[in-house]
C-alpha cells in the first residue's frame, strides 16, 4: 500500500484538501443535508463496494479503479472530519471569546 500511496500521493492530497475544505464549509452551511434515507442507501452502496473491493472480485483495471475510488473517498471523508472539527473548534472559541 505504501508503494501505491507513493505512486499517487498527489491525488490523495487533492482528495484530503477537498475534504478539508468541504468539512470547513459544512459547519456553517445553511443548506439542506442529506435525508436519512439517502444516507442509508449511500451507506449500503458503500458497504457493497467495499465488500467487492475486499473480496477482489472485480478483475483488472476496473478492480484497480474501484480500489482507487474507495481510497480517495476514505481520504476525502477523513479530510471532511478534520475540517469540520477544526472549524467547529475555531467557531466555538470565537463565540466564547465574544
Amino acid at each position: 500500500m505504501v508503494t501505491l500511496a507513493s505512486f499517487y500521493w498527489g491525488w490523495l492530497l487533492g482528495a484530503a484538501l477537498l475534504g478539508f475544505g468541504m468539512g470547513w464549509i459544512a459547519v456553517v452551511h445553511r443548506g439542506h443535508g442529506l435525508s436519512k434515507a439517502a444516507a442509508g442507501w449511500l451507506g449500503l452502496l458503500l458497504v457493497v463496494l467495499l465488500g467487492l473491493a475486499l473480496a477482489r472480485v472485480v478483475p483488472g483495471r476496473p478492480g484497480y479503479w474501484l480500489d482507487l475510488g474507495l481510497v480517495l473517498l476514505a481520504i476525502y471523508l477523513a479530510g471532511c472530519s478534520v475540517g469540520s472539527w477544526l472549524r467547529y473548534w475555531v467557531v466555538s472559541r470565537h463565540e466564547s471569546a465574544a
Partner: peptide, 14 residues
C-alpha cells in the same frame, strides 16, 4: 454526524 450530512456536495469534485 450532523455536519457529515452536508459533506455530499464535495462528492462531485471528488
Amino acid at each position: 454526524v450532523r455536519w457529515s450530512s452536508k459533506w455530499w456536495p464535495g462528492a462531485l469534485p471528488l
